[in-house]
Amino acid sequence: MSKPKGVYDNAATGDTSFRRTWDRDEYAHKAAERQAQEAKERKERYEAKVAGKKYLPKLDANINVKEFDDSKMVEARRDRIRLDENLNKVQIVPFGSTGGRRGKGAGYYCEACDLNFTNSLEYVEHLNSKQHLQATGQTDIVERATLEMVRERLQWLKQRKRDQNRAEQFDLAKRLAERRNIEEEERIERKERKRVKKEEKRREKLKANTNSVNLDDTQDRDATTMARMMGFEGFGSTKQR
């Protein structure tokens, strides 16, 4: 791929730097390669025609042909697609990525295909598409199940159900005991907290009583008489009560 470089190298502002740029040398090189390839093929085609044979392209490493198909058949999904994975999360989206589907942006992102989707239905449809399967090395065919496979699966599911039932039964008594312990602890803690609070309140009340007695006697009385003399009694409303 071409390196992202500023279009205007001397552009001091840089406000157009998000635009896509192209590496001319790289593409010139690619074009030369392709032309050489085509010339070679033309020559082989011509030679085959002269010899009166049918031209068949060679399986060459240079030619982009898969030598063997190692793609796997599609299997049923093991888990649910996690559509709410990014729910209530803040993500940083690259600038200028809101246009097409290519590249990571806001919404559902497919790592394998480098595509972004703005709704769940589109995303799931993409996961089922040939394009995605090809990118992840799968073919869009499913193996047909035989009777043995069905029997095996059913046995496994039955076993799983039995195990789950057993686990649940075992858990119940244990969980009840655990719950009881937790509740007992919580009760004691609540009691302790209440006691501490009560004690604190009592102490505060005592303190406040002794303080107010001192204030009333000396400074506070002076201040109120002075204020009355000056024509105001205090802050707040003048409303008669």
């Binding site: 049923a76 193996e143 699966r153």
Partner: peptide, 9 residues
């Protein structure tokens, strides 16, 4: 999607 007679179970 992609089920067969066994995974349908």
């Amino acid at each position: 999607w992609g089920l067969n007679a066994a995974t349908l179970l």
